[in-house]
Design a protein around this nucleic acid. Structure first.
Length: 755
DNA sequence: ATAGGGTTAG
């Protein structure tokens, strides 16, 4: 498994490491009965055209005024998601009864974006003299809880109390859900306590609500103490744990579920597939796939989309593509309404997972092609799906593709909300175009904390510390409450430009004013802040005062600072700790070895390197890529596979010569001791970013900025090389490495020599 | 008729 850029990961880090995770056979029960009986019980009713024929027939006979026939037809329209036709038929019915109103209201209540219609229908219903029953009320309540309309919901609750319709467990569950979704927890809890009859749904609602709030302990306790768990209870707890970031706990619960003898539902499969793909348990994923096929569940659109995502994340795009295209033939013919109404959504998700999958796997051209065929096949994407794709582009740093999607959004007239806005800002700033990011930021009408945070983090990434801070202050002035992610951005911004006092002040503000417990990112940023400024003793004290010496990223940052400030004694005394706590982290060895080399301790550097090889620790191969028109050109060190190979190498040689004339020198010691490369042959002159640079020079017009992405930190020599190149060629060179952007201009770099 | 399946920022 190679390293990839994951949309869900923090910064440009590698995928979660699961090397110490045992792959075991998934303990499915062999005595499984029909796991998903409802798939077989779905009634098969005619397709929409035949419904319209039936409608015409009834209309001619005048039997639409016979309520039973009219209501029956109305039900058929609603069940087949033909809400427009249902509404027209509804208007034709002159004498409506409670059932007529209820069928239409519950139909619209299930659909998204029709809440206003539901509320007005409900008012008309009462004005018409029809009395709402429990079904009507639950439907309207569902609508309220989805739209967070507590006002209208409370009105209904009051109406229920006034009219004494209460006491029904289903209705009370709807009320409970409403208060929980609207975050009125105290009231909801006492309501739950006072419910005379609680069923499994009531418990599931409570457990799900605690998980949405991130209260894992409370929900787990409730879940464990509840004896009558059903499959939804398990699904709720497993999915909730995943959402809260407790993937392993979720997997544990999945195994418990099997041990408990609870059969999987289609939802379980869907959740389980996403879970195993985020843990990279490919083998378990394949077993699940087999199980899905055994049960004939591959016709479920949601399951197919989870399979596409799983294979995409495992790098098996071939498999993902097969699943995307192999829609079972019997599927559309079956006229299975339960499935059809979900199908467009599921198709959309599958296609977008496919696009993101290609991007994650570095197959950008395939990603773009897939996106284009998706548009050609008239698959409508919603705003949130687009956000996912843009986020994948952001992590890959593929500006051109991101721009195309941005253009597509504008073309189809999707309103750019805070969701898509944040992903666009992230995409533009991670692709090196901070100006475009700022432009988006200014366009968004309803900003939220995520939007501000993406802009702040974008500035931090480009070393624009002052701008990040003024944005942050502006956000506070608007009364937007920062969260832990916002502070990561602010602290990073401070550390990138050495604003120690401000950084310390914001760190205190985070703890004291906003009561946010610092996480490893905040601590690392603080250590970076002190270390970069040369306050190594403060950094070390900070590490011990906060008992954060078990975090490897903290030591990594500290070691970088030791190297920067040439404090070798300090560096060596901590590097052992780093090696101990992270014996399989290649960066630890490289940092230590580089530091020894810089201090002319060649023997020690060699020892560190051989230790690394002995322990089987492998450095991830360096890779740089640039985008030219529609194509991504990717290079590894000493790469000779590019069609323009000869041209690139001869230009590179002459460029090295010309740069040497203006002062560039290749540090011989660095060449000898360079451990960035493990191939034995020293190829520092042919590092991937140099190849990418030369390729761009050859293929683009003079003076246009060059943007290069790299999956590792840029090395000392390349950094130096690029500075001279920017001077000689009078071009701006923008390099994104794993930590930040470097803007090379007129022989200097925006990072101020610290990275 | 009530609960559960992909959703932006580190």
């Amino acid at each position: 498994m190679g390293y990839r850029y994951f949309g869900s990961c923090r910064k440009f880090t590698k995928h979660v490491s699961v090397t110490n995770f045992h792959i075991v056979n998934f303990p499915f029960h062999s005595r499984s009965r029909q796991p998903c009986s409802f798939l077989h019980s779905t009634t098969s009713i005619g397709s929409p055209p035949s419904l319209r024929a039936l409608h015409g027939h009834y209309f001619k006979k005048g039997s639409l005024q016979i309520l039973n026939s009219a209501n029956y037809l109305l039900t058929l329209y609603v069940k087949s998601s033909n809400l427009d036709h249902a509404h027209k038929l509804f208007d034709e019915i002159t004498h409506k009864n409670t059932q007529t109103w209820t069928i239409l209201i519950s139909g619209f209540a299930r659909a998204a974006g029709s809440s206003e219609l539901v509320f007005s229908l409900f008012r008309e219903m009462q004005a018409d003299g029809a009395c709402p029953n429990q079904y009507t009320l639950s439907s309207v309540l569902k609508c309220c809880s989805r739209e967070n309309n507590i006002q209208f919901g409370k009105g209904i609750h009051a109406w229920i109390l006034r009219n004494g319709v209460g006491g029904d467990v289903v209705l009370e569950n709807s009320i409970l859900d409403l208060y929980l979704k609207c975050k009125e927890f105290e009231y909801a809890e006492s309501f739950f306590e006072l419910m005379i009859e609680k069923d499994v749904v009531s418990w599931n609602i409570m457990i799900g609500a605690y998980l949405r709030e991130g209260d894992v302990e409370k929900s787990l306790e409730m879940f464990r103490n509840f004896p009558n768990k059903d499959v939804v209870s398990w699904n709720t707890i497993i999915d909730g744990l995943i959402q809260c970031g407790y993937e392993r706990l979720a997997l544990e619960q999945l195994y418990c579920m099997v041990a408990h003898g609870t059969e999987f539902s289609p939802v379980t499969f869907s959740i389980a597939l996403i879970l195993v793909s985020s843990l990279s348990l490919v083998e378990v994923g394949r077993q699940l796939h087999g199980r899905v096929l055994t049960f004939g569940l591959n016709s479920d659109g949601y399951i197919r989309s989870s399979l596409v995502e799983m294979y995409g994340k495992c790098g098996r795009m071939d498999k993902a593509s097969t699943i995307l295209k192999d829609v079972p033939l019997n599927f559309l013919r079956k006229g299975n309404f339960g499935v059809t109404c979900k199908e467009p959504k599921a198709r959309m998700v599958s296609w977008s997972s496919m696009v993101s999958g290609y991007v994650w796997n570095g197959k950008y051209e395939d990603g773009m092609k897939t996106f284009r065929s998706m548009v050609c096949e008239l698959i409508v994407v919603d705003i949130r799906t687009v956000a996912t794709i843009i986020s994948a582009c952001a992590n890959a740093g593929i500006l051109e593709f991101g721009k195309q999607i941005h253009a597509y959004i504008q073309k189809i007239g999707l309103r750019i909300d805070a969701y898509v806005g944040s992903s666009l800002i992230d995409m533009y700033s991670k692709s090196g175009s901070l100006d475009d990011a700022l432009m988006i930021f200014e366009q968004i009408k309803e900003p939220n904390v995520v939007l501000w945070t993406s802009m702040i983090s974008g500035c931090a990434l480009h070393g624009q510390g002052k701008e990040a801070i003024s944005l942050f202050e502006g956000m506070l002035n608007l009364g937007i409450i920062p969260n832990e992610v916002t502070f990561v951005g602010v602290l990073n911004a401070c550390s990138h430009v050495g604003l120690i006092e401000e950084g310390c002040r914001y760190f205190r503000m985070m703890k004291d004013t906003y009561h946010i417990n610092p996480e490893v990112e905040h601590y690392t940023s603080m250590v970076n802040l002190y270390g970069r400024a040369g306050h190594l003793i403060e950094a070390k004290n900070f590490i011990f005062e906060n008992s954060i010496s078990h975090f490897t990223s903290v030591w990594r940052s500290f070691l970088s600072s030791c190297r920067l400030h040439k404090n070798f004694n300090m560096g060596k005394s901590v590097s052992e700790m780093l090696l101990q706590s992270a014996p399989s982290d290649p960066d630890a060895y490289i940092l230590l070895s580089n530091m020894c080399s810089s201090n002319h301790q060649w023997d020690e550097a060699a020892i560190v390197r051989s230790l690394m090889y002995q322990r089987g620790v492998k450095k991830q191969p360096g890779q740089s890529w640039v985008q030219l028109k529609d194509q991504i050109h990717s290079f590894t060190v000493g790469d000779r596979s590019h069609p323009q190979d000869k041209e690139i190498y001869s230009y590179l040689d002459s460029l090295i010569g010309r740069l040497k004339e203006i002062g560039y020198s290749l540090d011989a010691k660095l060449v000898m001791q360079d451990v960035e490369e493990e191939q034995g042959e020293v190829l520092i002159s042919h590092h991937s970013e140099k190849l990418a640079l030369v390729f761009s020079i050859i293929n683009t017009s003079p003076r246009t900025p060059i943007r290069i992405m790299k999956n590792l930190r840029i090395c000392n020599d390349c950094h130096n090389f690029f500075k001279y190149a920017s001077q000689l060629l009078e071009r701006e060179i923008i390099v994104r490495d794993t930590h930040r952007f470097h803007h090379f201009k007129q022989s200097s770099c925006s990072c101020g020599e610290y990275w």
